[in-house]
Design a protein around this nucleic acid. Structure first.
Length: 280
DNA sequence: AACAATGTTCAGTC
DNA sequence: GGACTGAACATTGT
């Protein structure tokens, strides 16, 4: 679920449904998800405040908060960082209204409770309760998501959806690593995960194993274009699992372009699918 | 039962 | 020190 498009969905969900609501309770008792904080630390920092803005770079999401005092409504509080990890999603509910989900969906309409997989309370790893009774929770069955105050962003490269061609070219270069490993490196560009990387390489017709040093300028240009296209397409269609190669991949299938059986292997430590004909 | 999984990070090796 | 690799992390699904 969570690559850049999914995280952007989550950000939109917060923006649309969680800002400006007073936080009256915080469950930060999962000390692994909330590391390196101690239980109660995030709670103490957020109680009485409200989320005032939702931001994202790559797969990292953060919220600014406003002060708790009535006369300091505009003063800024701690920054709440959230990462969905491998399987996390954000669920936001409003009383008297349908739940708003920020995990898989990006089409302009929020799914109703009935349309969502039944949530398990034990998979709620972090929860904010608002004064109106609604909640925001990080729902994560694999528990690799993360919540922390004042998250570090300086190690992240520019957002994959926004980076320009010249910057992309410069950051990608200077490495002997396979091009897929570079795309997955969050300090090169932020937001590309394993599935998006396979789609981008396939769209650009580049062999994932090729060292970036061997790529021609035209190939880097194609990668840049494919990256933007794939991100936009995933957002429009509802997540990275709707991308062409990702669907072929899940069926262990054939190249959507030429029908050849997709090759499978490990590149940059991750399982990789590519077309042995089109990506030579 | 063994292995893979949409992610990050840390320890180790060139 | 930089670049790179692989294991570890916690848990679920196949």
């Amino acid at each position: 679920m969570p690559e850049l498009p999914e995280v952007e969905t989550a950000r939109c969900a917060i923006e649309g449904a969680a800002l400006g609501r007073r936080i009256v309770e915080v469950d930060d008792t999962d000390s692994y998800v909330c590391r390196p904080h101690h239980p109660g630390e995030i709670r103490a920092a957020l109680l009485g405040r409200e989320l005032s803005g939702a931001f994202r770079r790559g797969k990292t999401l953060w919220c600014e908060t406003t002060g708790a005092g009535d006369r300091e409504e505009s003063s800024s509080g701690p920054v709440l960082g959230m990462h969905l990890g491998m399987a996390g999603r954000l669920l936001i509910s409003r009383p008297e209204q349908d739940d708003v989900e920020g995990g898989d969906y990006l089409g302009g309409r929020y799914p109703t409770v009935a349309e969502q997989p039944s949530p398990k309370p034990e998979w709620d790893r972090f929860t904010l309760t608002f004064a109106d009774g609604g909640v925001l929770r990080l729902f994560d069955k694999r528990r690799l998501g993360r919540v922390r105050l004042d998250p570090a962003l300086e190690a992240l490269g520019p957002d994959a959806a926004e980076v320009g061609l010249a910057e992309f070219r410069k950051r990608l270069a200077g490495s002997a690593a396979p091009v897929k490993a570079r795309l997955l490196d969050q300090s090169v560009v932020a937001g590309v995960g394993n599935l998006l990387a396979d789609e981008v390489l396939w769209q650009a017709r580049v062999d994932p194993r090729r060292p970036v040093a061997d790529l021609g300028p035209d190939e880097v240009t194609r990668l840049h274009r494919a990256m933007r296209t794939a991100v936009r397409t995933a957002m429009r269609r509802g997540g990275v699992h709707t991308l062409d190669v990702v669907e072929a991949r899940s069926r262990d299938g054939h190249c959507p372009r030429c029908g050849t059986a997709m090759a499978r292997g490990t590149v940059g430590t991750r399982t990789t699918y590519w077309c042995p004909v089109g990506q030579a």
